[in-house]
Every structure is written in structure tokens, then in C-alpha cells.
């Protein structure tokens, strides 16, 4: 990829393209309105439900508002315990995943070795093969290791789930690093490690960050492995949510929990905005 394409996007281009049909940033405004109504509206509806005690068709707003369901939810110890467990799990899994996958990604992206392509493609199996077919085998492995119902067991099963994104995305990022800069550093007398630390890593960082965020969020909301290995002692937030949404007559519980979950999501999104700009993840995923 040439340096030109990494240079900052041209502000005027699309505006100019679009000005032919109008005046100001009409497209942006249109896109904003479209997204606000399709992305935000459903979430606002969930938000209102969280504060509604009675809301029956055809009233535009709930007949009775109240915080009753919040009180009930927030007083539950299992909700807080599950939130803590989920955050701990997500941090641990993401950190471990980075530790083992980033070196591998570097090797896949920059080195030549036997079976490279086959091994690279094989990571697809982790996400594409339906897990239920492997239940008994995986359960047996974990039972024999005494990992069922343990934090470490859930970490291990969830770690496996993260490998594909954490290898594939950073591999492409390491690959698209500008070699001329690395050579220049080498010529200036830098050791290979220094080159990696000061040149290669900073250039691939935005894409790696994108992979990290995808991994973190994906792990936070993972349920299949968490249930198979974690039950009955390790209860994560989404497992709790499923029982509150699927098995409940009262939909407000689900709404309250959803709102509670958007807090960590929003923090992650704010962080993501900084690194997921135009090129970041984009460069990593090919193109």
C-alpha cells in the first residue's frame, strides 16, 4: 500500500462530488437522520421500557412510569457478580489472546515457513464449525482437566474463540507496514527489536487496536462456551440476560439489563472512535 493512500482523506472531495446535487452536506444530514431513526430508535424504545411499569398499545408513552424494576434489578447480587465476572473474563481473555496471537500474526504476516497458508486458513474452523457437534469432545477434555465450572476453564474456551480475529486482522496489518521506513531505521543502526518497537508496531497499532476491541466485545457477549464450561459456578452477564429475557414474563428486566450493558459498550465505543477512524481496522481487513 502506498504512502499516498494512508495520507489524510481529502475533505473537499466528496463534498464537491455531492455539491453537484445540492448545497451543504446533505448526504451527511440524510445519513444522520437515517441512522438515528434506524439505530437509535429501537434502543430508545428499550430505554423507555426500562422505566415503564405499564405500557399498553395504543398509548404513545407508558401509562405508568416507575423505577420499580431498577430497584429490583440493582438489588440483585447475581447481576453485579455477573457483570464483574464478565469484565474480568473479557480482560483476561483479551490480554492472553494478544500475548499468544500477536507474535503468531507477525509470523503469518511477515515470515515464510512450511504450511503457512494452510495453517492461516485453518483458523476459520474456530468460528465456522458449529460448536454443538463438538460438545461432548470439548466437555470431556475440560472435565478431565478439572476445568469445568472454573474461571480458568471459561478463559480457555473463550480464548479459542478469539484466535481467528486476533491472528487474521493483525497479520494483515503487519504485512502492510511500509518496508522502506523499516529499512531506513535499520540503515541508521537500529537493532531488529528496536525496528519492531519503534517502526513496525506503531504503524500497525490502529489495526491491532481494532482487533482488540472486536475481541473484547465478542468475549463479553459470548455465551455458548461460557455456559458449557462455566455452569454452574461461572455466570456471565449475557447468560444472566438470556434467562431474564427468554424465560421472563416481565420484559422490563431485559430492558433494564440492556441499559446497564450499554454503559460498558459506550465506553468501548468512545475508545473505538479514536482508533477505528477511516483506515484503522480497514487496512487490517484487506482491501
Amino acid at each position: 500500500m502506498s504512502l499516498l493512500s494512508i495520507s489524510p482523506p481529502t475533505p473537499s472531495l466528496l463534498t464537491r462530488l455531492l455539491r453537484r446535487t445540492g448545497g451543504a452536506d446533505w448526504f451527511g444530514l440524510l445519513a444522520f437522520i437515517f441512522l438515528a431513526s434506524t439505530i437509535i430508535l429501537p434502543l430508545v424504545v428499550v430505554g423507555i421500557w426500562a422505566f415503564a411499569e405499564v405500557w399498553r398499545y395504543p398509548a404513545v408513552l407508558p401509562q405508568r412510569f416507575g423505577l420499580g424494576f431498577w430497584g429490583e434489578m440493582l438489588a440483585r447480587r447475581d447481576v453485579w457478580a455477573a457483570l464483574t465476572t464478565s469484565l474480568e473474563l473479557s480482560f483476561t481473555v483479551t490480554a492472553l489472546s494478544m500475548l499468544i496471537c500477536l507474535p503468531a500474526a507477525y509470523a503469518f504476516g511477515r515470515m515464510e515457513f512450511p504450511f503457512r497458508n494452510t495453517l492461516f486458513l485453518s483458523f476459520l474452523t474456530l468460528r465456522a464449525f458449529p460448536k454443538f457437534g463438538l460438545l461432548i469432545v470439548i466437555a470431556t477434555i475440560f472435565l478431565n482437566l478439572g476445568l469445568v465450572g472454573t474461571f480458568a476453564g471459561v478463559v480457555l474456551i473463550q480464548l479459542v474463540d478469539t484466535l481467528m480475529y486476533m491472528v487474521w486482522i493483525p497479520a494483515a496489518a503487519f504485512q502492510s507496514v511500509d518496508r522502506r521506513l523499516e529499512e531506513a531505521a535499520q540503515d541508521a543502526g537500529a537493532t531488529p527489536l528496536q525496528v519492531f518497537w519503534h517502526v513496525t508496531l506503531p504503524q500497525s497499532l490502529p489495526t491491532i487496536a481494532a482487533a482488540v476491541i472486536l475481541t473484547f466485545v465478542g468475549t463479553f457477549y459470548e455465551t455458548e462456551g461460557a455456559w458449557l464450561i462455566g455452569a454452574p459456578t461461572v455466570t456471565t452477564m449475557p447468560i444472566l440476560m438470556i434467562s431474564f429475557i427468554n424465560n421472563q414474563l416481565v420484559i422490563q428486566y431485559g430492558a433494564v439489563l440492556s441499559l446497564m450493558l450499554w454503559v460498558p459498550s459506550f465506553v468501548a465505543l468512545m475508545f473505538a472512535r479514536r482508533v477505528l477512524g477511516g483506515d484503522a481496522i480497514a487496512r487490517g481487513l484487506g482491501g
Binding site: I39, I40, L43, V217, W262, L269
Partner: peptide
């Protein structure tokens, strides 16, 4: 806005 569904 486009990114938000990733977190839902």
C-alpha cells in the same frame, strides 16, 4: 452511529 450495533 454506524459503529454502535457492534456493541449490542
Amino acid at each position: 452511529l454506524v459503529m454502535f450495533p457492534m456493541f449490542v
